[in-house]
Design a protein around this nucleic acid. Sequence first.
DNA 1: AGAGTTTGTCGAAGCGTTTCGCTAAACGTT
DNA 2: AACGTTTAGCGAAACGCTTCGACAAACTCT
Lengths: 343, 343
Amino acid sequence: MANIHDVARVAGVSISTVSYALSGKRTVSEDARRRIVDAVQELGYLPNAAGRMLAGARTRILALSAPLRVDTYAPAHMAFVLAVATAARRYDYDILLLTEDEATNGLRRVTSSRLVDGVILLDVSMDDERLALVRDLAVPSVVVGVPGEASGLTCVDLDFAAAARLSIDQLVAAGHRSIALLGHPQAAYERGSNFPHRFRNAFVEYASERGLQSTFAMPGSSDADVRRAVDEVLDPKAGVSAVVMHCEESIQSRALTYIADSGRSIPGDLSIISACSSFDTSSFHPALDVIPLVAADSCDRAVALVMDALDGAPEPHVELVAPRYISRGSIAEPTHPAISALN
Amino acid sequence: MANIHDVARVAGVSISTVSYALSGKRTVSEDARRRIVDAVQELGYLPNAAGRMLAGARTRILALSAPLRVDTYAPAHMAFVLAVATAARRYDYDILLLTEDEATNGLRRVTSSRLVDGVILLDVSMDDERLALVRDLAVPSVVVGVPGEASGLTCVDLDFAAAARLSIDQLVAAGHRSIALLGHPQAAYERGSNFPHRFRNAFVEYASERGLQSTFAMPGSSDADVRRAVDEVLDPKAGVSAVVMHCEESIQSRALTYIADSGRSIPGDLSIISACSSFDTSSFHPALDVIPLVAADSCDRAVALVMDALDGAPEPHVELVAPRYISRGSIAEPTHPAISALN
DNA sequence: AGAGTTTGTCGAAGCGTTTCGCTAAACGTT
DNA sequence: AACGTTTAGCGAAACGCTTCGACAAACTCT
């Protein structure tokens, strides 16, 4: 394997000139530069990673802490891992994947041994064991998601509260006065991440602020559970004319099937919005209006923030990504104005 | 951050003694060893990764090439990534995750720059662009899965053909004479990996070898498609009394629901085996007999083979993991001996 | 007691880069 | 012509570790 000395010899210059020619950190005559580039080409030279790490201060590697919990929803998780890797490559960075149960140890190891320049944390729960460590880590770190206590951390996430308000605004604009939220299973609210809370709380609050009737249900994940939750939410007495679904794909899919089976048409009889969904809602029948949860949005920012922190140390802060609304025709004016809406 | 010089100073020895004490490659007096260990503890010393890489020949990093295709089944994919990472950690190795579209470039980059000691390839298709590169790579590489042409490669995979035969043996032992295979969607056979072929071909061949009647269907993934395929396979004229399912979770789940809805009991009216499934079939209703596809089995071996190759260069070869059968009561004797079975 | 062996330790070279400081040549100014 | 300035290039140090060879000191033999 060719090294920088070989390149220097072939090009007839010193190794420092090679280094400067390749990094561009000092000017090199056009003539020398060409000979160096040719030599690199000819020898198939690629700088030795360890040498660079040791001499330069950078390793060009980012640690990605992505522990797998029992209740991890694989497709979404994978989308985020992929998005981080893709974003990192744009800065010529590679990703070291940490999945160990004891994520803390892995983080300590790779940061203390200076294997990585920075750290990105995925899938943080409300009180994550990794956070204490990350708060006083020597290297920059960014959390994708917002934990219960975010002080001293840099976090990036979709603005779930704004997404809740956006979904309500859309329904209000269409004339709905009584709406429902079909949320995650109860377990998701009790432990795990806090985005279910952020969405639900903003939903309930903003609905009342805008003078709407709102109901909320947490379905289990079995088919029967989902049906029960849909029935609960669509109880005729409440006169609900629109449902916002903030839950996993399988639940949304089951709910849609049940709603179709029970003879209600969308958006004729019922308007539906799929909120903060990381999966493709355009292949549902019918396709659903959606406020997408785009992994790349958060992950691009997270990687960018680590890069910023590598030169200059910005203050820890929370950065929320604005939600956007994609219309696919699953909401319409309510046809049967509900009784409650007349109050 | 403390380095080896600091440790040497605190312990009152030279840096080479520290190195030998920590690596154990030369004997060090018990007295010195204790002082060194204490110093390491006190300073929180962890060897600098770049220094080790440069001096030693090892980087202690493995590249994991896990490109995401459109049709990748996320849960299984994630299980394999996790299994490789976990296996690598047992050898004190970390995983560099390569997901780029052009996986070849990533592999070339990390191997030529000596960032990684070895490579593991996941999810190889029949004619994978990565294989050509991997065949003459400077570092050891192991493929999880078996591509169309495996010469010059080291591959590890579940023995799908043996799994097909094992499922047939189980059914024959229970008295079945006419069986069906519910396979993957047609697209999976036309492109992508070749394990669907290996399973199907062995199934058909071995069924005829044992004198059985066998049918085969490739359902689409929609609910209607699955029902159609189940109907096709359970056509009364064929008298099928047992079904082996070698397909994704969603298809198996849909098939089970449909079979239950159409009033057939398992295993009373129909015996079922779930073959080479990476998901949990014990939470199905009813729980299914399964020949599990255990990610850890293949990945442990794959990592072990890379480690072996790092000292001494073993011949490229294909290593198949023997399938095992887990009984959960979803097969029984056929109650209504089929007409075709009397032929 | 002297020769040979083992044990514990150390200094120094080397891994492949980056980067600092220096120099010499070429250039522009007065 | 004498002076600064820029440009292009080089040598050497530094990064933090591993490992080779050397060498005393402590043992083991006869």
